[in-house]
Amino acid sequence: MDKIPILKMSDFLLVTIQVDLYDQLAENLESDLINMVKKYNSHGVLIDISAVSIIDSFMGRILGNIAMMSKILDAETVVVGMQPAVAITLIELGLPLKGVHSALNVEKGMALLRSKIHNIEQDISIPADDSSTE
């Protein structure tokens, strides 16, 4: 059985989806990820979907589920790198991905997560947006 690798980076979990998910794989990811959140007591989940060309309502539901389940376990979920065509299609489809935060890329996603859970680290010198280094 194929699996989507989940990387642990300090307080966060990082998932990079490189293939178009078929249903079983997506459902496995959902449960694996939630188990990992519990196991490592993670406070943030970062899902990189920059290589995903299609998000239908099923995939949208999986993402929403992950966000809601993580939230219950006190972890925030950020989806990063959504393709423009995917965003336009989701809006047209009427799927706003409620409860899921988004960011343009992994870097900004990390910054967003850190700003959301600033009570974790004493040092919150990292700004909310890295482009503020003018």
């Binding site: 423009p84 965003a87 989701l90 809006i91 343009l104």
Partner: peptide, 12 residues
Amino acid sequence: IKTVSATRLMGA
């Protein structure tokens, strides 16, 4: 509104 929502969905 659609344009704004799509932009937000991307994280901007």
